[in-house]
Simulated assay, not measured.
Amino acid sequence: MNHSPQVALPQGMTRRDVIAVISEVGRDLKLSAAAVYILTKLIGSTSAKDWAEPGAEPVFYGTQETMAERCHLTARQMRSHERTFERCGLLIRDTKANGAREAGTGRGLVFTPLKARFADLLALRDQKRETTNRIKELKSLRSVRLRRMKEGIARLSPEALDDEVIASILARYNAWPRSDRLHSLGIDQLERHIQDATDLCEELEERLENLPESSCEPAISFRSLLQEDNQKNPPVICNANVDERSAGKPAHSDLLRSEPSGSDDCRENKCGVESGVINPKLEALMQPEQLFKLASDDFQTALALRTNRITTEAIIDAAHDMLTPLGINYSAWRAACGAMGRHAAALCILVLDANRDHPQTPVRNPGGFLRGMIRAQKRGNLNLTGSLIGLQRRRG
């Protein structure tokens, strides 16, 4: 009995793909976990050739008793599952009056409806994956906001806690949903929460700037001011050869000092440590506007899609948005933030992304390279400033 001779799976798809898709979207079809399992067992007991050939009808000819025994069910339970699949439009029960099924007459559980719907189920699976990935991105972005908020709170002095605005900010912060409940919010509500969290972070930082003596601890990205009286620091001429190896080459993750670097007895290195003076050129290099110029076109686009202001937080958000395009796992990003802080982690992403088009040794595996930078940071060997200098030289 031919129910639909024109039915065909999408090109290249087989019975194995049908089973995989059903396993992934079965719950979205209102099927229980047990029903999904039974359905995949039934599909697996049909002819693989009938799924691959256009116009062929996949049919399960086995008896209810046999399949029920295989699945450790009663015949009644198996019959109930079959009726459920029929109501869901996944199969047709084409049996004799007494329920018998025969391969010779083509009578049995006909999966032609499922074969006809497979393209729609495939689209459902892709949409589900996209939703899952988006929720994962938003959850990771919430962790960025959470870390940013905690950094701001750490800078509050005890006196600042009596401020009404600060008290209101902290109350709204304490009302944030827990991290393990973010997935249940859904995309729309989660996106609204991320926007509210961003606004709250900016409100706290703005209030910190206006409060006297608001910093108990410096921000992680805080850099000490340049000494105004530079004449007190004697000029030093480096007595070591300049290391040119970063010019036109990828960033190094195994160096400690900023390039160019001399030997351990270099007078320039010793003087820099003793005086505590930050090179004005290095200070300028760390400014968000300069970092933006060093970034790749993709990184700049990611930042521009979020805001038209080039700030440190915008750099961090753009780095977060580049994780998926670069194939970097969110666990690596969280590890980097924990090891070196959000700002330094964002600079690592900027460097890795910019060096993908390196003419000699491009970065092929940004995720693996980032984990290498994390290990170098823990060993105290990460030279992020030197990497940025090398990138600046290559940019001309």
Rank of each mutant, 00 (worst) to 15 (best):
S4C: 08
A8T: 12
I22G: 02
L31V: 04
T66R: 11
M67L: 15
E69T: 03
H72A: 11
S80V: 03
S80F: 09
E86F: 01
T95F: 03
A97C: 05
G99P: 11
A100V: 11
T105P: 01
K115Q: 14
K115V: 04
L121M: 08
R125N: 15
R125F: 06
E130P: 05
E130F: 06
N133C: 14
I135F: 09
I135T: 08
K136P: 03
E137C: 09
L141Y: 12
L141G: 09
A154F: 01
R155P: 01
L156W: 00
A160V: 07
L161W: 09
D162K: 06
D163P: 05
A167I: 05
S184T: 13
H193G: 13
I194T: 10
T198S: 14
C201Q: 01
L204F: 01
N230A: 15
P234A: 14
I237G: 14
I237M: 13
A247L: 11
A247S: 10
R257G: 15
G262Y: 02
D265R: 10
I278P: 03
P280Y: 05
Q287E: 11
T301K: 11
N308A: 13
D317L: 13
H320R: 11
M322L: 12
M322R: 15
P325E: 07
Y330E: 15
R342F: 00
R364T: 10
P366T: 04
R371C: 03
G372F: 00
L388F: 11
G390E: 02
